[in-house]
Amino acid sequence: MKVVIMNKNEVEILLVEDNPSDEELAIIALKNNNITNKIQVARDGAEALEYIFGSVDSETLICVGPMVVLLDLKLPKIDGLEVLKKMKAHPEAKKIPVVVLTSSSEERDMVESYLLGVNSYIRKPVDFNQFTEAVQQIGLYWLLLNKQPPHKQILVKSNSKI
């Protein structure tokens, strides 16, 4: 499976996932549902923040996309809740819909995510067919049905890292 790295503004789905199998299965599920939107993968929380803000400590949004972030919670370096917190605290980044897609069904994770302003919380089912269905719903809703407010014009650094 090849993930094409592309211009940030064309990216429509940011998949934050550290497990290669889950990453691959997610991409298969997306393709199976004919979701051909451009996908960018970040393998930990730091990579996700670097993608959105340029660096972990930056407060400046550097991407217009994606249309949706699929965020795992248990991640190396910086965990998913922290990524979510930073995004939802930012006046521009908080407009980007974030769907937590995680193994955890712990109530505290769910409650914490919603308190931080997550848009959806989905537990990854073990059954691949169910997972494919869930991904289909996500794609249908966030990429097709959902309307997003316009983003402010953002200066895109052409030499950005990713």
Binding site: N19, S21, D22, L25, I28, K74, T102, S103, S104, S105, E106, K124, P125, V126, D127, F128, F131
Partner: peptide, 15 residues
């Protein structure tokens, strides 16, 4: 357990 044990199962079932 809830997180780590389920991930390999998803791989087994999924693939």
């Amino acid at each position: 357990v809830s997180h780590d044990l389920r991930a390999p199962l998803r791989a087994i079932n999924g693939f």
